[in-house]
Design a binder for these strands. Sequence first.
DNA 1: AAGTGGTCTAGACCACAGT
DNA 2: CTGTGGTCTAGACCACTTA
Lengths: 248, 248
Amino acid sequence: MGHGSSTSLKAEGTSRGSKRLNTWQSIRADVLGRIRSGEWPPGELIPTEQELAIEMGCARATVNRALRELATSGIIKRRRKVGTRVASTPSCRTTLSLPVMRDEIENLGTRYSYALCAYETGPGIDSAREALQVDLGHPLLMVKSRYLSDNNVYCCEAIWLNPAVIDLPDPSVFETEPPQEWLSGNLPVQQTRFAILAREIEDICASNLNLLPGTPVLTIERVNSLDAVPVSFARQFYPPHHRLIFDD
Amino acid sequence: MGHGSSTSLKAEGTSRGSKRLNTWQSIRADVLGRIRSGEWPPGELIPTEQELAIEMGCARATVNRALRELATSGIIKRRRKVGTRVASTPSCRTTLSLPVMRDEIENLGTRYSYALCAYETGPGIDSAREALQVDLGHPLLMVKSRYLSDNNVYCCEAIWLNPAVIDLPDPSVFETEPPQEWLSGNLPVQQTRFAILAREIEDICASNLNLLPGTPVLTIERVNSLDAVPVSFARQFYPPHHRLIFDD
DNA sequence: AAGTGGTCTAGACCACAGT
DNA sequence: CTGTGGTCTAGACCACTTA
């Protein structure tokens, strides 16, 4: 323990001319470096926040912030009283961002456009009724549309909306505005549940994506809920070359 | 420890000691509630940290923590000098966790088992050579294996390892230990890049998954690197019913 | 120049989990 | 019990952006 030897100044300040010495980012980088270098191998217990704070000459809160970020990334595991360990099984955690289609396409640097393909009111498909918790006699509005990136079909979407729980507009508004955007603009922000899966493309969408029926397509399903009441079920199909990339 | 029971504490002075009132979680919940209720609609500027801290009766740092978490989730957007806005386009951000297969299966509450299917040294497939940045004359070790969940095939894996950059063990060790686990246990933690996509299952793996050739399978590709040098390229195939779920 | 978020600090208390 | 991470606080300064 500290025995007064330290005058508690991190003065020194000369060794590095850098602007900020003790950013939490720099501490995170330092710890990460020691892990990657093998100095702290998987499963190893690393020093406590207190010890690291002293060693790095910063406040414990700063170390805490750095280690918290590493824990969130799955790099380390923290438990009270026990301490902090390097993750023994490298469970990679990363952030999945699913923006609105307009942003997704424009972020590619390409020109976004949207087109309505069709709409109809009917019983919908099994998956939609299940997700929306309604039965066969209950009509749903289905809207099919396409998103283009520089005039190439980027994604094909089918969405089922439950008119019993939300006031739907005249479907003609979907000629210019995607249903997902209409939802977020006209209802208080919803809760959304996702699933990512692989499916054979549906026959009806195959032509929209210029694909042969049976082609595997990456599919994202979304259920939007309002106060825990599901209001829409959507499927977005991406052509075969599409990948969700995670670099870190 | 130097400090005896130096009861210099200020007796908590505050009124009632109900649990904790001003946790950052409660503040996050409060703000989220106001957003969801429509009090602060999309695009709206919300009060500054300072104002919220006063209103909630807590420190600005606590408000900052709460808002930071919301910003990370994509619920709000923050800019210095400008302030904090409710996201106008609800770009959903969530955490994708890709644990080791053993954990992934055991987390389902099922029994995990692993089986080696085959291995061979050869030129590998185009994608593998590209990912590993080697050419045709360069031999790679390919290992195919299966992961079972309660004796049902859960996932089928093919991995190509570059013997030029890592010392590979005798392939027989892969009879009991999955290559991914061997990698993480015998090399300093690597950087991993991912991609998620949909593919037709390869003929060779179809029988391993008890599927017909051509079936769409959710595929995860991983490239493990060591000091920016790629050492392995893996493809994991999940049967058609498999979904990556995001609830939040 | 001024306002807002971003971060650091030093100290304190709490929650949890081993002993 | 004790030790460890988790959090709150009050104040301070910095960084970025707009006016």
